[in-house]
């Protein structure tokens, strides 16, 4: 799932919002918020900002469908990384090629290591790291975690996952 927010221009008369809501439900999106920016009315048109949670596969089709109803999309942005979790790694993280461990997540294309905090007690002792991973959706996050877990297992690194999703 992705969260997209768009600003559309609607004529200031009844029945206009339906033209946007209809395609959203058609593509199984979930409306998170709708804000009418009445103070910005110009030439009889109101800018309306809508946030939608929707399957990334459907984003393009949704935008096209809205446009086909004669509605102008003034702005559109997709916040890509919506799911985040942190895991603790314990083991010889540095000596086992750290970058290839991180690649297990980064190379997926749908997830990234966005934060890392390593603590090394002393030489040759196992080190401990907190790694924060973000992905474009929950399913993708799960897959990235599975990749990371497989790599860690091969390298003898313990991965401690959260009990509940963040």
């Amino acid at each position: 799932m992705a969260i997209v927010s768009l600003v559309v221009e609607l004529k200031d008369k009844p029945g206009q919002l339906a033209k946007v809501i209809e395609p959203v439900s058609k593509y199984k999106g979930n409306i998170i918020s709708i804000v009418h920016r009445r103070e910005e009315i110009s030439e009889g048109k109101v800018p309306v900002e809508i946030s939608i949670e929707i399957d990334e596969k459907n984003v393009k089709k949704l935008l096209e469908n809205i446009k086909s109803k004669g509605i102008t999309i003034k702005r559109f942005n997709e916040s890509r990384l919506t799911s985040t979790t942190s895991v603790v790694l314990i083991g010889h993280i540095i000596h086992t090629d750290l970058s290839s461990t991180i690649d297990a997540v980064d190379k997926t294309g749908f997830a990234e290591v966005v934060e890392m905090h390593i603590s090394m007690p002393c030489l040759n002792k196992p080190s401990t790291a907190m790694v924060t991973i973000s992905a474009i959706g929950d399913e993708e996050l799960k897959k990235a975690m599975e990749n990371l877990k497989a790599v860690c297992k091969k390298k003898g690194i313990i991965m401690i996952e959260p009990l509940e999703p963040e």
Binding site: V88, I90, G91, H117, S119, P121, P126, S127, T128, A129, M130, I158, I160
Partner: peptide, 10 residues
């Protein structure tokens, strides 16, 4: 294999 540092960063 749990280290004391793991608790600190967690």
């Amino acid at each position: 294999k749990i280290t004391p540092e793991a608790f600190e960063i967690a």
